[in-house]
Design a protein around this nucleic acid. Sequence first.
DNA 1: CCACATTCTTGCAGTATGCAACATTAGTGA
DNA 2: TCACTAATGTTGCATACTGCAAGAATGTGG
Lengths: 162, 162
Amino acid sequence: MNGEDQAAVISAVLAGSRLLVAIAARSLGAVADRVTVPQFRMLVVLSGHGETKLVTMAELLDVNSSTAMRMADRLAAAGLVVREVNPLNRRESLMRLTDEGRRIVDQVTARRRDEIAAIVSRMSPAERQALVSAMTAFNEAGGEPAAPTLRAGSHPLGWPEA
Amino acid sequence: MNGEDQAAVISAVLAGSRLLVAIAARSLGAVADRVTVPQFRMLVVLSGHGETKLVTMAELLDVNSSTAMRMADRLAAAGLVVREVNPLNRRESLMRLTDEGRRIVDQVTARRRDEIAAIVSRMSPAERQALVSAMTAFNEAGGEPAAPTLRAGSHPLGWPEA
DNA sequence: CCACATTCTTGCAGTATGCAACATTAGTGA
DNA sequence: TCACTAATGTTGCATACTGCAAGAATGTGG
């Protein structure tokens, strides 16, 4: 691959990255008055992971357990999660989504999908097909690359951005 | 477009989104001990915008001016930016990158481009060409869509993710 | 000169974050 | 059974990010 090709593909990918981040930011905006971004991340993990103990949650979010602790406290106070001691191991306390918490996750997820759907609907069928193929190839090529220890990106989330 | 096609393209795009966010997170990791993510965003804005007054910076980052104020204070204390009163308008104080600040931005940018380059290098030339076309079409289709007031995504950044 | 707008700054409150220390509970080996 | 160790949650402390509100300094238009 020559330099021009490389620059073109990197530019295109970076531009796509900015667009996707903007979509994620907008999808969060609707619930910004109810949960913060870190709190939403915790809700998403619970949505895909079911009952989760504190240490596991901290690992999944890649934060200190004390951080996860206080976030869980606030989400519990807001009625979006519940925490109860695991009867099988009284050291652990398991946390899970309330209906209200799940509603928030679903709302944001739906909005994000809608936005992507709206964009791809503006593309021709051929372009759509090409997009699926190209993104699939890109995702496979980037599967678990240089830094296998960093498990960042394992979870379906979104972050606000400027 | 039928439902299956739609689901396939959305899944592919969302997976790509996760991968790109993971790349952004790793690219930030190298400087995580020197600047926080919001601080890095400010450096990126300065990198592309030159001398900037506080209010403008706050708008570009979409934060309150008091937030931008204190971030600027910390970056100045760290020697990554300098602030000086605008002689043409003594209300304003303009801020700009130091060499050290620019070095950090360049380092992260280079790392991100390297990671993307490494991924596309694992794709076949045909796949690469298809990726450029597909991403270009996607970016154009998503140019300035439903929410024109939200200018999120205008800046080339990255956010850590779980 | 006066009224108003712009800009920066600071006080206050709440959230996020990591480190370190601690108590409780579980497991393990003598 | 008892002591040692590990796992887990919790809290104290310090720093950073965030917005709102109030105030000071400066500029602008009359």
